[in-house]
């Protein structure tokens, strides 16, 4: 087993998390959400004031007062059944549809909802991987091969001498040495933001309710028929 006591020190986990801008990481998205909410609220107020109201100057006694916002009205047709008794006793009652034109504030029939960031998830996952490994291997091999051979022959009368010899030697040596060091860091930062619809602010609800409660049919003058 490799001796890591003398190798590079492992990364200190505490040190890795020290100095992280946690305030910015968590507070940043929340501040951005609040800013987005403010922008959406302003956009909606702008829509309400420009679309659902018309601006008029209230001039009295030669002095121009503050601007007056009057609700934009749209004309609606109200159809209701009226039971008319028969002309004579015993005649069946007649149901007549009476149409009248009424004016409704546009504000009351628009599907208004407060748009706002209703959910912010800040997922901060920081993963610090620190690892040290050392692989050290020595491979040494040596082989020696020796071989010898001798053959001698001695003869007489007609002399014959024969000498044979053979010597062989092989030797090989190899060494392998490898060292491996590895360190890695990774961080993941995820922010989920969802904008949804919230109930209308009570103030706007009160205005709409006041208008709604005062919807009363106004009989419009009969249109002159073309001759």
């Amino acid at each position: 087993m490799a001796d890591t006591s003398n190798g590079p020190a492992l990364v200190s986990m505490a040190q890795q998390f020290t100095g992280l801008p946690m305030g910015s990481l968590i507070g940043g998205p929340l501040m951005a959400a609040a800013k987005a909410n403010q922008q959406m609220a302003l956009t909606q107020v702008d829509f309400l004031m420009k679309t659902c109201f018309t601006q008029a100057s209230n001039t009295s006694g030669g002095k121009t007062d503050a601007k007056v916002y009057q609700p934009t009205m749209i004309e609606m047709q109200l159809t209701r059944g009226v039971i008319t008794p028969g002309a004579k006793a015993g005649d069946p009652a007649v149901i007549q549809n009476i149409n009248s034109t009424i004016k409704l504030p546009l504000l009351t029939i628009l599907p208004l909802n407060s748009l706002a960031v209703d959910n912010v998830n800040v997922n901060f996952v920081m993963q610090v991987n620190s690892s040290y490994s050392e692989d050290h291997s020595d491979t040494s091999s040596e082989s020696t091969h020796a071989e010898g051979s001798f053959d001698a022959k001695i003869g007489g009368f007609l002399w014959s001498v024969e000498v044979k010899g053979s010597v062989s030697h092989d030797s090989s040596s190899s060494t392998t040495n490898s060292t491996h060091y590895q360190k890695s860091n990774s961080a993941t930062y995820t922010v989920d933001v969802h904008a949804g619809q919230l109930p209308l602010p009570p103030g706007v609800g009160v205005i709409i309710q006041a208008y709604t409660n005062n919807i009363t049919p106004i009989e419009m003058p009969a249109q002159e028929k073309a001759a």
């Binding site: 679309t51 934009t72 159809t79 209701r80 599907p111």
Partner: peptide, 23 residues
């Protein structure tokens, strides 16, 4: 009471349509 409500005229229809589109 069964009273019916609808848009009375073309002008009001256009006004409502523009407002809905904007919203």
């Amino acid at each position: 009471c069964g009273s019916g409500l609808s848009v009375a005229n073309e002008t009001s229809t256009q006004l409502l349509e523009q407002s809905l589109d904007k919203l």
